[in-house]
């Protein structure tokens, strides 16, 4: 296991270096100058040149790159050109918001996707299977912003059950909260705060979760069908096991492995922030931060955030590998030997 872990870490280093080089060159290839973006339409060339000089944008690229790398080696993610604040500080603010949203969305997708996938495999072509087909088609093809607007209109405008956007109400004591707010409310057992924060997370999590649940259910259905046609299921039936038992204790453990891999990739993706969902729901996550950074050509913010995304993605995919290995003894033995 330790050998496995170390190998993964060693493999990660060249990948990260490549990511950095690619992102650095790509960000500098996008036309447009941060100083021009920051100063707006009425700025004069002189004002722009002064700002370019202040931001060290007038030094040669290789110097900018080496300065940046040197900073990174000292554990410094750099300073945002747009806000003048350290990128690490901003990530500390926005990553928790994105992480909480991703976890709740994952829970939603499990809640919808697992039963739907299993039940539709029970009777392929049956009514539940048909529903699943319709749901996956919609879930995968309806754009996030459309679903978001639809949910807002139904649950906020018509039914008035849920808040439209933000992480908390502006009139609540926890207005403009940041960090692990929901986990904090859970931890402290603060009911009113939990209710406010919880009601705000439902819709964005549902939007993200719908898509993942559709993918998950579809995937699970297929692997379940494959497992159900295996010989050991025939044996189980011959032993006289009930259908539910066959589904849950025989077929499911064998079918779930690939589904976890899919879920892992999706979860890693969500931790990178969902720009559309975060924008529509005014969710202060990394997706919007990244979007603003790209829009204003905030070089160090783009580079460092991408680096952090890459690391997170690696950790998540490592995590899914471990979970799959724990479930499947063949993989576990094969890799640790």
């Amino acid at each position: 296991m330790i050998y496995f872990f170390l190998r993964r870490v060693m493999e990660a280093i060249p990948v990260l270096a490549l990511v950095l080089l690619a992102v650095f060159s790509l960000t500098h290839l996008i036309p447009g100058d941060p100083a021009v973006m920051l100063l707006g339409p009425d700025a004069t060339n002189l004002q722009i040149m002064t700002l370019r000089h202040d931001l060290h944008l007038d030094t040669p690229l290789y110097l900018q790159f080496s300065t940046y790398m040197l900073q990174l080696l000292h554990g410094d993610l750099g300073t945002s050109l747009r806000t003048g604040r350290p990128v690490a500080d901003s990530l500390r603010l926005y990553l928790p918001a994105t992480a909480e949203l991703a976890v709740v969305a994952l829970l939603f997708s499990l809640l919808i996707g697992l039963p739907l996938g299993i039940l539709s495999a029970r009777k392929p072509g049956g009514i539940i299977d048909r529903i699943l087909q319709l749901y996956t088609l919609c879930g995968v093809s309806v754009p996030a912003f459309l679903l978001a607007f639809g949910l807002q209109i139904v649950f906020c405008s018509w039914l008035d059950w849920l808040p439209v956007a933000g992480r908390s109400s502006a009139f609540a004591p926890q207005a403009l909260t940041s960090g692990f707010a929901l986990s904090g409310a859970l931890f402290h057992g603060n009911v009113s705060m939990l209710a406010d924060l919880g009601s705000h997370i439902v819709l964005p999590a549902l939007v993200l979760g719908t898509f993942i649940a559709a993918t998950l259910a579809r995937f699970l259905r297929n692997t379940m069908l494959e497992a159900l046609s295996a010989d050991y299921i025939l044996t189980a039936r011959a032993k006289g096991l009930r259908q539910t038992q066959i589904l849950l204790s025989q077929a499911f453990p064998n079918a779930v492995g690939p589904a976890i891999m899919v879920l892992g990739v999706q979860f890693g993706d969500m931790l990178g922030g969902a720009i559309l969902t975060e924008t529509v729901f005014s969710w202060p996550g990394v997706g919007r931060y990244m979007f603003e950074a790209i829009r204003t050509r905030d070089y160090s913010a783009i580079q460092s955030t991408t680096l952090v995304f890459a690391i997170i993605f690696m950790i998540v995919s490592f995590g899914t590998d471990v979970i799959t290995a724990l479930i499947d003894p063949r993989l576990r033995n094969g890799r640790s030997s």
Partner: peptide, 30 residues
């Protein structure tokens, strides 16, 4: 005085209708 940053125009619209915001600013350049 609470300033809330809401980038999306239709979200601002709905929040104003629900009374979750009191004033909707349109003062971004351009």
């Amino acid at each position: 005085l609470v300033y809330r940053i809401i980038t999306d125009a239709s979200t601002r619209h709905m929040e104003l209708e629900r009374g979750e915001i009191d004033i909707c600013q349109q003062n971004a350049q351009l």
